[in-house]
Amino acid sequence: MRNLWIFISKYNAFFLLIFFLVLSLILLVNNNSYQRASAWNSSNFMIGLAYQRVNSFTSYLSLGRTNDSLALENAVLRNRLKTSLFNDSIEQHEVTDTLTEQQYTYIVAKVINNSIHQKNNYITINRGLNHGIQKGMGVVSAKGIVGIVLNVSERFATIQSVLHSDTRISASVNGDIGSLVWGEGNYDPRLAILKDIPNHVIVKRGNKVVTSGYSLFPSGLEIGRVTRTGLKGGDSFLDIEIWLSTNFSNLQYVYVINNMFAQEQKDLETLNKTE
């Protein structure tokens, strides 16, 4: 105690400085709003930092419980998900236009069953008669054509995919019209054959193949690109291989094309046959 007293009195200037400095700082911080705010802010920053460190440690301890509650929440959310419910509403967009009349409307559908490895492949979608889907409508995806509606039930419809040996789709390359087929010696789900293009037509690799408009599809929809072209022995038609732009292996959503004038066209064309 005596030594301490000697020490303090020996360096009294320093201890006096500390005393008076602390005194004036207390006065400063307590009586001036700016310094008070700064002091509190910096101490809040320190406290915040400390809390953050501690929290990052304690959160490890409750990790298991957090996981359980998150899994539970996931299950609850999954039940509310659109895919768990059968969505009965149809999303159909129409534009009222007095200059041009709407010929095609699109109905969004989700693919619920799909095959690509058979000789004849079919796709099932979750839209049916109730939603205005009828037999013979064209189906496209965001990237290209998918197929033709084959059978329709109340809530579902099956589609005869492009990957079907009976499917014939009118396609055009550089304005020349041919017929798109699949399954004649080719079972690759990414390739199709374009037939009936005469061999005087120059078709190059990479040329775009689109729908012609003679079939159920509006004209100009993309089908794919030419990957190989050549003559088949003795034939007067080109044998063109096409890389399909639709990837059938990961088809999710498709659009069913409703041609408003299909019935009218069909009625007119049946007259030709009866006469």
């Binding site: 400095l21 005194l23 004036s24």
Partner: peptide
């Protein structure tokens, strides 16, 4: 208050 006091200390 306290500012000049601190400086003078």
């Amino acid at each position: 208050l306290g500012l000049n006091a601190a400086a003078c200390s």
